[in-house]
């Protein structure tokens, strides 16, 4: 059984703790790991996966960003989210965000980081990944995610026209 999984590459276990409730509710696996090789090992099974990379963007940790490129090569469908530990001025933040997204990451989070935002990013990207794989297995079935449901947007203009 290919359970959806969240793999968090972190050094203090904070990300894993924040996502534990969501993972339990959604029946997802969550792995908190400390090395790049452990991340790659979890990608071998082809489960729908979101990888979180915690970094302080220091020179010692820049090699972690090479992992984004490796993950893209191993499995282009895996979504990567980079979580920065340090707050940066706007210009630098913009430059870093652009460079990280250019390497293939799907989102970059900077402090102050709240649990709902982290949950929204992870659940959204993982649901999209599950849908992609499910659509591949069941081609004729229409699968929708809460963010794709058109009814979620109430268009007042349409309602006025109908009235």
């Amino acid at each position: 059984m290919k359970y959806p999984q969240v793999v968090a590459l972190e050094y203090d276990g904070w990300l894993g703790k924040q996502l534990r409730d969501l993972a339990r509710e959604s029946r997802w696996l969550i792995h908190s790991v400390r090395t790049s090789s452990a991340v790659k090992a979890h990608l071998q099974r082809g489960n729908p996966t979101v990888v979180l990379i915690q970094t302080d963007l220091s020179e010692e940790q820049l090699r972690l960003l090479a992992l984004i490129d490796d993950i893209r090569r191993l499995d282009p469908d895996v979504s990567v989210i980079v979580v920065s530990d340090i707050k940066l001025p706007d210009a630098e933040r913009c430059a870093w965000t652009t460079a990280i997204l250019d390497l293939g990451a799907r989102y970059v989070l900077f402090p102050p980081l709240t649990k709902p935002v982290l949950e929204d990013v992870v659940s959204g990207l993982l649901s999209a990944s599950i849908n992609r794989i499910a659509r591949q297995a069941i081609p004729n079935r229409v699968l929708t995610h809460k963010s794709t449901q058109r009814n979620a947007v109430i268009d007042l203009a349409d309602q006025e026209t109908q009235a």
Binding site: D120, V121, A128, S147
Partner: peptide, 27 residues
């Protein structure tokens, strides 16, 4: 840079913040 945004996977407010927010990438 090439920036890929998954509009299905990300909530609209996250995309809005990423593109047009304070220090957004289009700035």
């Amino acid at each position: 840079a090439f920036i890929g945004v998954d509009c299905v996977g990300l909530q609209p407010y996250l995309i809005d913040s990423l593109l047009f927010g304070h220090g957004g990438i289009l700035e």
